[in-house]
């Protein structure tokens, strides 16, 4: 198994005014891994992913993707799915595919079209007229149709119905490369944990724990979902 670190954070800090969002986050993700980023609301998941995608700057520490801090190079090898709709709503599905093809040299338009067809999203459909779940599916198809080294998906399954969730999970499992890694944040742990290698638990801006899914099941006799509910009990 390849143990190259493709994505890491070292003592990462981020404040919004006086509020601390990340308080010394450190972890490393190796290639070939599918990793879940878990934590309650406000634990820093979206902030971490935004810094990694180069949309926010940290106040301290660093993120390294293939050894480099976020910038032009890391963006060329990182496929990021934001936590909200980022496509122009006046575009049609086909236009969005063209847009991605223009922007990203590693984008496979044929693959994207095939995925959209599987999910019954018509090329001529206007994005603004799609339901929230359909918009999310659309954006996820585009994100997964890049041949990236690192995929960062911020809550990719939230608004998606269970049947499409299964399709998307299978799509991820069939498509991600052995020399790539995928990190996704989610609250739908039960649906997705068997597809993950590892999980990173965030709590109040710090890493509580990074552990293999089967290692955790072996140790606790609980699923990751059950463990989460126990650890973060309100």
């Amino acid at each position: 198994m390849n143990e190259n670190v493709i994505y890491e954070a070292q003592d990462l800090h981020k404040r919004y005014g006086s509020r601390v969002a990340l308080n010394g986050v450190s972890f490393a993700v190796t290639t070939g891994k599918l990793v879940g980023l878990l934590g309650p609301n406000g634990s820093g998941k979206t902030t971490l992913l935004k810094i990694s995608a180069g949309l926010l700057t940290a106040n301290g520490g660093c993120v390294l993707i293939d050894g480099q801090e976020p910038g032009v190079y890391t963006k060329s090898i990182t496929s990021y799915l934001p936590d909200r709709m980022a496509l122009p709503t006046e575009m049609r599905a086909a236009d969005a595919v063209d847009l991605y093809a223009d922007f990203y040299t590693d984008f496979d338009a044929a693959k994207a079209r095939a995925m959209l067809a599987d999910l019954h999203i018509e090329a001529r459909n206007r994005i603004g007229a799609m339901s929230k779940g359909t918009q999310e599916k659309m954006q996820l198809c585009l994100t997964m149709s890049r041949s990236a080294r690192l995929y960062l998906l911020d809550e990719p399954l939230g608004g998606v119905d269970p049947a499409a969730r299964d399709y998307i999970l299978q799509t991820i499992l069939r498509n991600y490369h052995e020399d790539a890694a995928l990190v996704l944040s989610t609250h739908l742990i039960g649906d997705i944990e068997r597809a993950l290698d590892e999980v990173i638990f965030l709590q109040e801006g710090s890493v509580l724990r990074q552990v293999g899914v089967d290692a955790l099941r072996e140790e606790t006799g609980h699923s990751v979902d059950e463990y989460f509910r126990e650890v973060y009990k309100c």
């Binding site: 198994m1 891994k33 599918l34 999970l169 499992l173 068997r194 290698d197 899914v213």
Partner: peptide, 14 residues
């Protein structure tokens, strides 16, 4: 492996 993994909805490494 990849086919079986996708079919079962599990991680290919597992």
């Amino acid at each position: 492996v990849r086919e079986l993994a996708a079919d079962a909805g599990v991680n290919p490494n597992t």
